[in-house]
Design a binder for these strands. Structure first.
Lengths: 134, 134
DNA sequence: ATAAGTGCAAACGATTTGCGACCGC
DNA sequence: GCGGTCGCAAATCGTTTGCACTTAT
């Protein structure tokens, strides 16, 4: 933990700070436009590389849900998500974690289980009204 | 349900049949190679188009899990999955469904919830031994 | 000096699309 | 003949990579 040279670079700091400033779960390119306002010359490659780095070093998490793009979350505490099938937005779901599922699953699958994730899908408050029996 | 012209074409039939012939959860290109043995001139575009069609018409499901490629499932009964972080394979998890989660989630998120999915991740029997404290 | 990090542009892998040919009614 | 479907190739989208240049120590 206490080695290496540059560790938290300026770019990394801004990226994490922008990620933590929102409660949404932005995609890399959504973050890219947010970050550009603070670092106009940053490249999308740096955003991807540093998001990966932040995840690997326990500063953020990548949430692997459906939809084409990956999304990122500035908190590392595990929690569940709900994704809108209309607009793609992702919100947190405040449900207690089901920790106790892992061992029964290990028993019948033979896997070692490291994590689980629950993704709900549906329509967000905005999208649900703009589709009253279209 | 009873309209249109061609409905189940030969290609669609073979694709669904191949998909249903396996208990794994193949990606589009894994299916493509399986299907080519029966329809050597089929194109990958047809596979994608028809998988989409089969899903939309209730013959199959797309399982939106992590990893880069989408996977398909020849059964439409909802169930949970576990994905191996080593080799990427996906297996079924025989856990009863948590149907009762939807209304509490609707209440606190304001979404209309249509589905949910649980994805476990870990290491499959094969991969877990080939990584004894590497 | 040197190892890590950056920006840019090109490469990549998965999926989608435009289009002319084709098939079954 | 007509609408739906097909195969092919090209296009697109999200993400990753190679490389030459910069930066902090």
């Amino acid at each position: 933990m206490t080695s290496s040279t540059h560790r938290i670079t300026h770019q990394r700091e801004i990226i994490l700070q922008r990620l933590q400033s929102v409660t949404s779960h932005p995609t890399a390119d959504e973050l890219y436009v947010m970050i550009k306002q603070h670092l106009p010359r940053i490249s999308i490659a740096t955003v991807y590389r540093n998001l990966e780095w932040l995840v690997d070093h326990g500063y953020a998490q990548k949430i692997e849900v459906g939809g084409r793009q990956k999304r990122f979350d500035g908190t590392t505490r595990p929690h569940y998500h709900i994704r809108c099938l209309g607009c793609g937005r992702v919100d947190d779901v405040a449900l207690p974690l089901f920790e106790n599922l892992h061992s029964p699953v290990e028993n019948h699958t033979g896997y070692v289980v490291t994590k689980h994730h629950i993704e709900f899908t549906g329509y967000c408050p905005q999208c649900k009204q703009s589709r009253q029996k279209s």
